[in-house]
């Protein structure tokens, strides 16, 4: 199953390379195009998680002042604090695990992305053992054997060997941008102090780590990371728009409900709803 998935991607990569003219540019283009296609195909798998995380972040943000009060009240008794928090969540109908359920959805896409990543590595066979594996993958389409070895030199890069400066910097830069956009989308920073700290750490460590990885990996895989990050940013932007539109729709009945009973909590929801709408409009004006 796993090998079949990788083989499918290898055949698609080489088929596209063949279609695009069999040049080094064709190789880079086929990696880029298939990266975009794979990322788009996994969007339906990531949407539930994004939705859950955004909803969860918003709910937690609204609840934060009350949680802070509880923390002050039970600062020496974590058991009672825990119990009180749980009761608060139950009272408001909030399931803090919903974002974890979202994470599960995100995990579903990983095998697909990892198989594609492996297929690029396999297609860029650089050593005899790798070439033999590639020839096995190509056995369903024997004519593809005439295309290997694939061209490995593109611009000043050897796609099968690591690049030390340019591509790692691009990988790190796009990872940072993508992380930044992602954390802003889920509003983690404003929602929870601990999560915000973790998010901040990730914002620094992930780009550094992926930049370092890019210095060890074939340049062809760095291209995958860069295109994947840029595509993710595009998807994130579109998803945010879609989720914000959804939130606005959901917000309307909430405001009507707030005006009907006049409670303090509902007033806060009302303000929050206005704030969100205002920010979104402001963003549109700037854009």
């Amino acid at each position: 199953m796993w090998n079949t998935l990788i083989q499918g991607f290898v055949l698609a990569l080489i088929g596209l390379y063949n279609f695009l003219g069999r040049s080094p540019w064709s190789m880079v283009l086929s990696i880029s195009i298939l990266t975009i296609v794979v990322r788009l195909l996994t969007v339906p798998l990531t949407l539930p998680s994004q939705r859950a995380m955004k909803k969860n972040a918003k709910q937690m943000q609204e609840l934060q002042p009350e949680i802070d009060k509880l923390k002050k009240k039970f600062k020496n008794d974590s058991q009672k604090l825990q119990q009180a928090q749980l009761e608060l969540y139950q009272e408001r109908g909030i399931n803090p695990l919903s974002s974890m359920t979202g994470c599960l959805w995100m995990l579903i896409q990983l095998p697909i992305i990892w198989a594609f990543y492996q297929s690029i590595s396999r297609a860029l066979a650089y050593q005899p053992g790798e070439m033999l594996v590639l020839s096995q993958y190509l056995s369903p389409v024997p004519s593809f054997l005439s295309l290997v070895p694939l061209p490995s030199h593109w611009l000043w890069f050897n796609l099968a060997r690591p690049d030390l400066i340019v591509l790692p910097l691009l990988v790190a830069g796009t990872t940072w941008l993508q992380q930044k956009l992602g954390s802003a989308a889920t509003q983690v920073a404003a929602a929870d102090g601990q999560a915000a700290q973790m998010s901040q750490s990730m914002l620094i460590t992930m780009p550094l780590m992926f930049g370092y990885l890019a210095m060890q990996m074939p340049a062809g895989l760095s291209i995958y990371f860069i295109v994947s990050n840029v595509t993710s940013m595009g998807i994130q932007w579109l998803t945010n728009r879609w989720l914000n539109t959804g939130a606005e729709e959901e917000g309307k009945p909430a405001r009507r409900s707030a005006s009907s009973n006049g409670s303090g909590t509902d007033e806060r929801e009302k303000d929050s709803g206005r704030g969100t709408t205002y920010r979104k409009r402001g963003y549109r004006r700037k854009g």
């Binding site: 990543y117 492996q118 050593q127 005899p128 053992g129 790798e130 990730m202 992930m206 780590m209 990885l213």
Partner: peptide, 19 residues
Amino acid sequence: IVVVPVLVAGCGRNVPPYW
């Protein structure tokens, strides 16, 4: 989150290159 990709990526090209 950081270490798992490092290990996976680093050991990813696990085809024995020679005999």
